[in-house]
């Protein structure tokens, strides 16, 4: 007994130290192996510049789609109880646990020229694989569950009495959603948005299968890192460094933002929260 009391505390500290070293040393290494000046210079080169611009466009478009369609879908799942609701939520969560490469194959099987919907798309004169649209679809496929899951939890945390109060004050369901549910869930929605954005920005596996790695058309930042890895390691480091800075900035912004909205409204808006109730 005495022995375990003596050892337990230090054991926890050792474990935490190991975790911290393992997770931070590689990140530090990127910035020690390159310099800010080098990052700026390498990002000025064509391949990096094109990849940066493409990533911004495709991730932006995907996030717009996810928020525009995912928010009302999550609101429905959070506020209505119906048969099969748990199954619907599980289906939405499936891409979370699916290997991204498999997601790419699946998208190909559905929307490829010889795929499930290939003939229909062909008849409309559409060919999706290896286009910018394919990148947007790949990003939306892997990133949307991050947003929707969080959005369901955020809407569930809004006290239904608030919506009742709005309705009794003359607001229709639409106005109650805009003026009450949406602002009160905003902290959780922002957190989900950030998680989805970070996941989408780093998307690699599904994109490389479904959209390929064509410079200027489908080669996003992560694909550019991979392409440069063998030819120009410094460029890979530079792009990697920039991605880390962007991701860290998002994480920080969400943490600050959520602590602010938590103080404003009541629902908890921790960035990593539990699964929505089934």
């Amino acid at each position: 007994m005495i022995r375990s009391r003596v050892w337990f505390g230090p054991l926890l500290v050792i474990a935490l130290t190991a975790v911290l070293v393992f997770l931070t040393v590689p990140v530090l290494a990127i910035f020690l192996e390159t310099t800010p000046a080098q990052i700026v210079r390498k990002l000025g080169e064509d391949q990096a510049r094109e990849a940066l611009w493409l990533s911004a466009r495709t991730t932006g478009a995907a996030m717009l789609l996810i928020v525009a369609v995912g928010t009302p879908a999550a609101y429905l799942l959070a506020t209505r109880r119906f048969r099969g609701r748990a199954l619907v939520i599980t289906l939405i969560e499936l891409p979370l646990v699916m290997p991204p490469v498999v997601a790419g194959i699946a998208l190909f099987a559905a929307f490829g020229r010889a795929g499930l919907l290939g003939d229909e798309l062909g008849a409309l004169g559409l060919s999706i694989p290896f286009t910018e649209a394919a990148v947007v679809m790949a990003v939306a496929f892997v990133a949307s569950p991050f947003y929707i899951r969080q959005a369901i939890a955020a809407f569930e945390a809004v006290d239904p009495v608030m919506v009742d109060a709005a309705r009794s004050l003359g607001a229709g369901p639409g106005r109650a959603f805009w003026r009450i549910s949406l602002p009160l869930a905003s902290g959780g929605l922002t957190a989900g948005w950030a998680l989805a954005f970070a996941r989408g920005l780093g998307e690699f596996g599904a994109t490389i299968i479904f959209a390929g790695s064509l410079q200027g058309t489908t080669q996003t930042l992560p694909l550019a890192v991979y392409a440069q890895f063998e030819s120009d390691f410094d460029a890979a480091l530079a792009i990697g460094g920039m991605l880390i800075v962007v991701s860290a900035a998002i994480l920080l912004a969400v943490k600050l933002g959520s602590s602010w909205t938590t103080r404003l409204a009541s629902p908890s808006t921790s960035i990593f929260r539990g699964a929505p109730s089934a």
Partner: peptide
Amino acid sequence: ERRSVGLVFQEYALFP
């Protein structure tokens, strides 16, 4: 929203 009814909720349910 189409009933002319004023409801004061328990705990008041003010919009925070």
